[in-house]
Design a binder for these strands. Structure first.
Lengths: 218, 218
DNA sequence: CGTAGTTTTGAGAGGCGTCAAGGAGCGTGG
DNA sequence: CCACGCTCCTTGACGCCTCTCAAAACTACG
């Protein structure tokens, strides 16, 4: 992160608290007062927004090292819920302390800005996916994104365990769980992947890439 | 914004530069180096992302007072393009100066954080719209959002001129321009709105609200 | 070993996309 | 001032992709 020892030391005080979240329970819910950002240390989260009439929509999946809670800053309360998809642990980053320290260290300040900007860019990518891709393309893009992030954390490039249900995948990708399941099956028929419940083996990354983006890589 | 006179004075130096953007030309393009945020002073913008294969997708429409360019912070270059939909003027906010001043004034710092958080929350709303609403609901939500933002700027609660084409609306809402047009026509048949090209008159706001959210307001 | 939750698969329906043609608005130039 | 062409918008017909409804198979967990 480019901080010197003194800065590291100060930062340590900000992130001193940790919190465990059991599978299925929430780190925060929509409407909860906002106090802190959370850095995922272990485990896997989903964030979801809920409409007035009860439908809800998964806005993202977060894994180790990713930051949750930036939605809460605007109105001093969270606008989405964060649910652990498996037993998890997070670092609690009290936001007022983060702001105070940011005023002292420009590197930290810029880092915070980058994290928020990254979230905005990610959201734009999801909007592109939801707005202009078909079911096959969405699922292919989803798998590639997931495996790429896992790979960056030292896991396999081609093998993964899904931490979320078909319904949650569907909610995230704007499709019904049946369509998710059918699309998985189609990929399997075409020899692109192996799926067995939550286990996925990507046999042909290029083929997935071509589905997402036919022109360039196909 | 809650700044005292001294702070206002300093801030004035940050926003000293202005820039005119003619209708149809871009404030910045994807890939352009990031230097500044832009506050819309007058006019109307769209932002759009482009896939490797040339498809592009409108991620938002920005009007007076709204901030553009936060996508550029992460990678020091813009990931989307901002195009003026009518002759416009923006305040240029050099981001390094904004960071420097933010370290001095916590009110400004928090304001910047809020602006970015607001964008994240807005994006989540669009994801919800794209992921779990049907064409009618999307267009109704779009109209309500637009007219509400215009009303907040002193314009009519029920009347508006669309600054964007059917195709741009469609791109934003994840539907084809023909579907946008057809849905407008259906709303007209039902007596909810009057549409004549770019001019829209909302005759029954409640009906639109019910379309977006049947359970609660219907 | 039984029960609840998850996933798969099928059949049928419908919403939206695609293709196509015509019409309206607007700027440009004769 | 009118004609022309360009862009944008509307509308129709048809087809496909995805949703809906339904049932069965599999897994996990008590």
């Amino acid at each position: 992160m480019g901080l010197n020892p003194e800065e590291m030391d100060k930062l340590d005080h900000v992130i001193s608290t940790r919190k465990r979240v059991k599978r299925g329970s929430s780190l925060f819910n929509a409407g909860d007062p906002f106090t802190s950002l959370y850095a995922v240390r272990s485990g896997f989260f989903k964030t979801s927004v809920t409409t007035a009439d009860g439908r809800d929509h998964v806005t993202g999946f977060q894994m180790t090292g990713e930051i949750i809670g930036m939605d809460g800053i605007v109105h001093d309360k969270h606008s989405c819920a964060a649910i652990a998809l498996e037993d998890a642990e997070v670092c609690v980053l009290p936001f007022d302390k983060l702001e105070t320290l940011s005023r002292e260290f420009s590197t930290l300040q810029h880092h915070v800005h980058k994290i928020m900007s990254r979230e905005i860019v990610r959201d734009h990518g999801v909007m592109l996916l939801l707005g202009s891709m078909r079911a096959e393309e969405r699922l292919a893009a989803f798998l590639l994104n997931l495996v790429q992030r896992l790979h960056a954390r030292g896991f396999s490039k081609s093998e993964l365990i899904l931490r979320m249900t078909r319904e949650e995948i569907g909610s995230y990708l704007g499709m019904k769980l049946e369509t998710v399941s059918r699309t998985f099956s189609r990929f399997m028929d075409e020899g692109i992947i192996d799926v067995k419940q939550r286990y996925v083996l990507i046999k042909d990354t290029d083929a997935l890439q071509k589905i997402v983006n036919p022109q360039v890589s196909g």
